[in-house]
Structures are given as C-alpha cells and as structure tokens.
Design a protein around this nucleic acid. Structure first.
Lengths: 259, 259
DNA sequence: CCGCCGTGTCGAACACGTTCAACTTCCCGT
DNA sequence: ACGGGAAGTTGAACGTGTTCGACACGGCGG
C-alpha cells in the first residue's frame, strides 16, 4: 500500500527553523541534533501499543485521507489517549515514515519480478518505474493529501532528508541494479552516477504522478513509456563524439551541486 | 561563479507597492467550481481595509516568517477582527497569492534590463533566470516556510493551478521573449514549445533554490550557470540529424502530457 | 424621515495538533 | 517480599486556523 512521494533536487540538511518540533522516530535515537523524536518501545507491551496505533492510523488515513483523520480519532479508534500516540510518534507526520518503508519493500518485490527476466536496459528501467507507480497507486489520494508535508525542506519526510537516506539509498540501489544487470553499454564515467540520476528522474515521475488527475493516472504511465526510450537513447548517445563534452559537463555540474 | 547578472534595486522613491494584480481584476470570480475565495470589495472602504490587511500580513510574513505569523497577530496589528481578514481572504494561504504577483512584477522589471541589451540566447536565458532568483532572494526563508502549502496539488497556490495561470502565463512569456529576441536558430517545431519547457526548468531551479542551504544560495547560481550552456547547446544540437527523432519524440511526449 | 438590505465588521466558539504534569503498571535489585 | 524507578499512559489545557451568527454602517426607495 503505499507510497513515497517527493520532489526535487537539493541538498539535505537540516536546521529546523520552525517550531522546532521535528522528530526522528524510526532510526537511531539521540544523535547530536536535538530532534524531538518519538520513543522507541522498550517492552513487549510498548511494542504492541505502538503497532496498534500505527496500524489504526494507517487504516484511517487510507479510509478517510490524511487531513480528515484526526489524532483524536486515531487515539479513540485505537482505544488509547491522544498523548499516548505522541509518546511513540513525534508528530502526525511521523506516522507516515512507516509508509516509506512499506512502499520500498513492495516496490523492491515488484521490481524483482521484472529484473529477474529482462535484460535490456530500457525494459528494466521501465519495469522498475512502473513497479513503483503500481505500488503507490492504491494510495494516490492519500499521497496527494500528505505530499505537501513531504515537500517541505525541513521535514524529516523529505526524500532528501537525512532521515530518509536509508530508504533513499535502497531506492537508488534498485536503479543501479536495473542498470548493471542490463546489457547496455554506458560511458564508464556516467555509469557510476547514472543510478542517482535515474532515481532523480523517478522523483520527477512521482511528482507528476501526485499531480496527475487523469483517470487511473494513465498520463503518468504515458510519461514513463515515453521517457524511458528517450533516456535509453540518450544514454546510448552519450558515448557519441558530439555529445561527449555535454556528458562531461552534466556530470561535472551534478558533482558540484550534490553535497 | 557567483555573478548575479542583474543589479538589484530598481526604483527609489516611494514604496512601489502597486496592487500588482490590478489588471487581472477582469477575471470574474465564480466559475462553476465552488471555490472558497475571499470577497471582492465593493466599496472604497472595503478596498482600503483589504489593502490594510494584505500589507500588514506581508510585512509580518517577511518579519517573522509564514508559520510564525498568526492570523490573530495580523488582525491585531492591522486593527481589525480576525473574521474580517477571512471576509477578504479565503484562508491564510490566499494571503500569499499577492506574493506571486509582486514577485512576477519585479522579475519582469529586472529581466527587462538584461533583455534590452543582450542578444545571445544563452545570455538572455541566464539573465532571466538570475533575475528570478535575485527577486526572490530576500524572501528565501519565508519562501521555504510556505513552500509546502504551494506544493499541494489541490492548493490554489500551486504554480500549476488554474488560479495561478495568469501569473504562470506571464512568467512563460518572459522566457518566450528571451528566446524570440535572441539570435538563436531553433528547430521551428521546437520554437513554439520551448518557452514552456524553459519555464518548467525555471520551476526546477526554484525547487532547488528552496532546498538550497548553501550560503547566499550560491549553489543555485552554480546550477543556473552550469545548466544554461547545456540547454543552449542542446537547443542548438536539436537541429542535428542524429537528434531530430529525439527532439520529435520529446515534443510528442510533452504534448501528450500537457492537459 | 423611516425602513431596508447589501456590505462590512466583530469576536466568541469550534476542531485541530501538540504539550505536559500527574498518574499507573510492572520489572528488577535487594 | 517489597519498594524504587523506568516505561507507559492519561486527559485537560494551550495556541492555532477557521467558522458563524449577530451587529453596525450607509445609501436609496418610499
């Protein structure tokens, strides 16, 4: 079920400016950055309560949408007090982090089916991209409603945030596999950077998908089907003499902009 | 790297506030879609109150940031009741629409200075892009804080929304002028669509800019300075025999995806 | 002069996300 | 066996954006 969404380019980072409420729930507790995080359950009962709250929240999010689901409703439905939810999750947004993980797992599973059989780069890339959209499709409405939250630069839910980096790296690995497992011949200099660029393109697809109002998001499918051959051709052409300097410049720029 | 093409201040003398939107007033409210908009003032007193609220809000937004500025603070500072603000503006977000208009006006002014002198496509494009960033720079923090609300697909603040289309079209026109006023030779088929693509690239630059945490957003400047020559070269190469089919495919895809 | 009604104005009230001090539960060392 | 304290839990309370019924203003027809 579910998804991941997010936008653009940039560097992660993170001085929290706002109310300073952020929070890191899932990952390591207490790094140097004074994040306000949810607690990591230490007992079996705690684990159970945490899961109960999370499952209830996810169910309500999908049933009613993100904005329409109140924390009070989640607590009531789960049979706990509101404050209890905040004991485990730093904020309503943090309840969504789980969403990323779930989505990644399913994306990986779906993608594996294609990667096991196809050998052409274009077909493998196409498969991974469609697998991602397939995974997110049931949550399209939900994703759109909380997309704004993920879009905020300071949000821990931003795909570029350090908090999302495990998920992000795993996602990039998926595109790396699509490339290395293929028979495509690629400029060796480009080969190292390409997976990240493909992931960036994937973010673009997701961005389009979130805004896509066409029935069943058929336009997003068209975007994938149209863009993949172009990318494939460009990658192939990158070894061409005329385009070599362009390739080189692109790579140089990417390296400069990434931090 | 770091040359900001366009000099900053334009007019001295009185605060050139100008309603900015004024011209677009012709656009009737009330389309079929029942939008929850603010009221259009019908009396002189109403106009005055509306302006008072708007100016106060913009000032506080810039002083304290978007999230830190409460509607109660705006009302109090303006000497009116909270409900009065909601009489003219449908929501807190709607107060930001003006920001777009103001930004566009200044962008246009700054860009004009470059477009009046330069003739090369690359230099003109570079000028327009830097002019845009120049315009927004004072509001970087503010922009980041409300960016999320603009990112939401259903938000009237989305750059892709129908409510933003006047501003968007005017912005695209800026890029069209950068192209048509130049000496660049472009595939005629591409010439019509290119301005919109350049605007899209501009949205990408803004996206990067919002996330840019480097001091004075120097990385965004580097992005512009690096991307412009690439775009210039690609546009030039688009007439090449090998790339003709690619160009054609790109255009076909764009046309399909645009609604 | 009166009454009317559309425009403008008010501020209490609502629902929300979030916080916090107080309470309960229950494991562990003694 | 027991008591101390960490883990877990509670719900009232705070500040927010937004809504809503009531009221004030002012010009115009009678």
């Amino acid at each position: 079920m579910t998804d991941r969404s997010v936008p653009p380019p940039a560097d992660a980072g993170g001085a929290a400016e706002q109310t300073g409420v952020g929070g890191a729930a899932g990952a390591e507790p207490a790094t140097a950055r004074g994040e306000a995080a949810g607690a990591e359950p230490a007992t079996a009962r705690g684990e159970q309560t945490r899961k109960l709250i999370l499952d209830t929240a996810m169910r309500l999010f999908r049933e009613r949408g993100y904005a329409q689901t109140t924390m009070r409703a989640v607590a009531k439905e789960a049979g706990v007090a509101v404050g209890n939810a905040y004991y485990y999750f730093g904020s309503k947004e943090h309840l969504i982090q789980e969403f990323y993980a779930e989505t990644l797992v399913e994306h990986r599973t779906r993608a594996a089916r294609v990667l096991a059989t196809e050998t052409g780069f274009a077909e493998r890339l196409r498969g991974v991209l469609h697998a991602g959209v397939d995974t997110m499709t049931p949550s399209h409405e939900f994703a759109a409603s909380f997309f704004k939250t993920a879009a905020e630069p300071t949000s821990p839910l931003s795909p570029f945030s350090t908090e999302s980096s495990p998920t992000r790296d795993a996602s990039i690995a998926l595109f790396r596999e699509a490339l290395t497992g293929s028979t495509a011949k690629v400029d060796p200099e480009l080969r190292d950077e390409l997976p990240e660029l493909l992931w960036l393109a994937y973010m673009g697809v997701i961005l389009y998908w979130v805004y896509d109002r066409s029935p069943d998001q058929t336009k997003t499918r068209a975007l994938i089907n149209g863009a993949v051959p172009l990318i494939d051709r460009l990658v192939g052409l990158s070894r061409l003499r005329v385009l070599r300097p362009v390739t080189r410049d692109v790579l140089g720029l990417i390296r400069t902009l990434r931090q």
